[in-house]
Nucleic acid binder design. Structure first.
Lengths: 154, 154
DNA sequence: ATATATAAGATATATTTAGTCTTATATCGA
DNA sequence: TCGATATAAGACTAAATATATCTTATATAT
């Protein structure tokens, strides 16, 4: 009952992009290095983020990824579910037909509540806020590399 | 990010026992049949429940399992965590040392909140309440055979 | 045209989950 | 005491999933 590595990587990727702001192109290689994600794995994750409309992928010699939306509009939930699908803590939440009477079942109700709460909490978190402070899953300062200055920090 | 089958089975097992009340001995075989859990798998799960102090296992020809505590005192959280260990939705929740500055990290904070909420919700649910109504994961009516008589039936 | 970057899917590896099997031990009742 | 029956415990197998890499194709700037 925990987030997969792919989900975690997706968050890191968007977090890194969010620090550069909407529309800024960042190469896959840079993201991979800064977020400590295997490049080819990142490619797969990026494709899922692109399909979900969160990022745009540009091919070619000067290609890379960039956010399609303002970071404040991107929720943690959206990114996670773009990678791992809709969250459902228990089978009977995602597939009510797997129970004979899920409408009545008290266990089912608890799972539904928990699932709803979890999704709500993840939905409240947006990437403008998340990117504003230090993030434990990124290398300390993205601007050490030169071509960007998120907020004049360091 | 979902409950394992073992966790689900553990809930079914305790739910079935809860319907018989604290202290009533029920054979593994009966539980396995009624909750649709493979008997040997149930044995492993029961051992974990016993280690957690939730049930007692009796060996021998008239052996079986029984609740050590009143169902109202047993929470969904306790049963689940007896089986799958303490819930942690993300690595950095369970192992803060895996981040460089988890105290500051905003992502970390969201996960912490979500994790806490989830555990709280599961803790609010007790098995007296859960067993009171129909449960979608058990066969309809366990009392169909009247008062339980483990040693009497074949 | 070439160099470089990503696309997409196939493949390989590792880990976790799920379930089974075997041998040992406990208890009851003849 | 012995045999029947139940669970104990852990080894073992199988399946599913997660993780990562590899290969070939395609896109773009120069």
């Amino acid at each position: 009952m925990r987030l997969t590595r792919a989900g975690e990587y997706g968050i890191r990727c968007v977090l890194h992009l969010a620090r550069h702001g909407k529309g800024t192109l960042v190469s896959r290689k840079e993201i991979a290095v800064r977020t400590d994600v295997p490049p080819h794995f990142l490619a797969k994750i990026a494709q899922q983020l692109a399909r979900a409309g969160i990022i745009e992928i540009l091919q070619g010699a000067t290609g890379g990824y960039r956010l399609l939306t303002d970071p404040s509009k991107i929720t943690l939930l959206a990114v996670i579910e773009a990678i791992i699908g809709e969250i459902s803590l228990n089978d009977c939440v995602g597939r009510p037909e797997s129970c004979h009477n899920s409408a009545l079942c008290t266990v089912h109700r608890v799972w539904n509540k928990a699932n709803q709460q979890l999704r709500a909490t993840l939905q409240e978190a947006n990437f403008a806020t998340l990117a504003a402070e230090d993030a434990c899953c990124l290398t300390p300062f993205p601007e050490a590399d030169g071509h960007n200055q998120p907020s004049g920090k360091k």
